[in-house]
Nucleic acid binder design. Structure first.
Lengths: 210, 210
DNA sequence: CCTCCATTACTCGATGTCGAGTATTACGGT
DNA sequence: ACCGTAATACTCGACATCGAGTAATGGAGG
């Protein structure tokens, strides 16, 4: 259809909201906030309005009516189309069924870890571990609160997923720190060597081929 | 400094490459390929050149010389500046030390899981589990190959991280499937109910408040 | 009843990202 | 000697994303 279809999940959220009931962009944003969807789907006003326009151009949603309350700005109410419902189900299915290459900041950082000295790397990893612990505690607290309020598991499933990933990351980071510390990290000498050479402006052969 | 500084990690990779030696953008791309950096840092030609320009504007890198080989296009050789070295270390440190909110497609999908029927959700999750298994096998094979070639752990650390995350995800997805299947998933009836109402066009109260 | 701040609803210009396109040369095969 | 394909080095225009800005209303406090 369009050029860069299915890039921004915010468009998927729009389809999901309009699947429930017709409404206008500002209200979509407010609803996303109330339901804590903005924790899992990046929300930005400018982007929201442009994403809505793009969905309209693609025939997945359409204007239902334009209402004006006094002299406030007009509210443009959209509704989902048949094609939009199909797109919603198909896109959502893809997101669930197909693991995708995602580029995270930490992964990028790890791939350049050799730029730092091992000691510096350890210091930074320890800070990460501490922050992950904070996150996990906060997350635990929220979970208890949510349980008290009788929130069902379906409503917390994204958060359950993210917390599980963070817990796994925490354990991995902790082990990595140990390995570098006690010298069992394989290739530690090469790492140090490479670093000394760079600092001295010497040629270095970062033997990176697979 | 600039408006949207530290957004694209590709800029970090550029700084890291110029930290090793002066070179031109096209060669940076080639080097990133050779070293499998493009697996962890998204590489795109257009973006690369615009990112380089932005780094130059910010004074983090500068043109060293412009050479021409016969009648080929000119190659613009860049080198890193003092400010650039500081930025490299600071940015990299931040990526390692501070866990950041990352928005993944799967998380977005999970947060809208209620749009699907439980049975459909299970089918899709099973497909995901199968694909994760494939990924993990391929990853295992690569790991053995890399070991044979004597690659050091530092060079594979990003891949080790990603594989560990995928393994954790696989186990979580498997448990989730079980819970929905055997009915122990809390709130399954509410889920089904909500769905019936939507399908019938009835009012539904998606009680999402925290 | 007046003032101030939050809320409502959206717009705009700058900046970032995408990937196909261009033009040249090197090189292997026949 | 000729052809086709890969590699070299970069450009361009369409599209996406960002977040500050705008302009009106409603309500709480003095």
């Amino acid at each position: 259809m369009s050029t860069r279809a299915r890039s921004n999940p915010l468009a998927l959220a729009v389809l999901a909201l309009l699947y429930e009931r017709p409404t206008h962009p500002y209200d979509m944003a407010a609803t996303m906030r109330e339901r804590h969807k903005e924790d899992s789907i990046k929300l930005n006003y400018g982007t929201l309005y442009s994403v809505v326009q793009s969905l309209e151009k693609r025939g997945l949603i359409q204007v239902k009516e334009v209402v004006r309350d006094g002299r406030r700005p007009e509210r443009t109410i959209y509704e989902i189309t048949g094609a939009g419902k199909l797109e919603l189900e198909d896109w959502l299915s893809e997101l669930i069924a197909a693991p995708a290459r995602e580029y995270t900041g930490f992964e990028a950082g790890l791939s350049l870890l050799g730029v730092l000295e091992p000691e510096e790397a350890v210091r930074l990893l320890e800070e990460r571990r501490a922050r992950l612990d904070e996150f996990l505690h906060a997350s635990e607290a929220m979970r208890e609160l949510a349980a008290k309020r009788g929130l069902t598991r379906l409503l917390l499933i994204e958060s359950e997923y993210v917390t599980m990933l963070r817990r796994a990351e925490r354990e991995w980071v902790a082990r990595l720190i140990e390995d570098i510390r006690d010298g069992s990290f394989e290739g530690l000498e090469t790492w140090r060597d490479w670093h000394r050479r760079i600092a001295a402006g010497l040629p270095h052969d970062p033997n990176h081929q697979l």
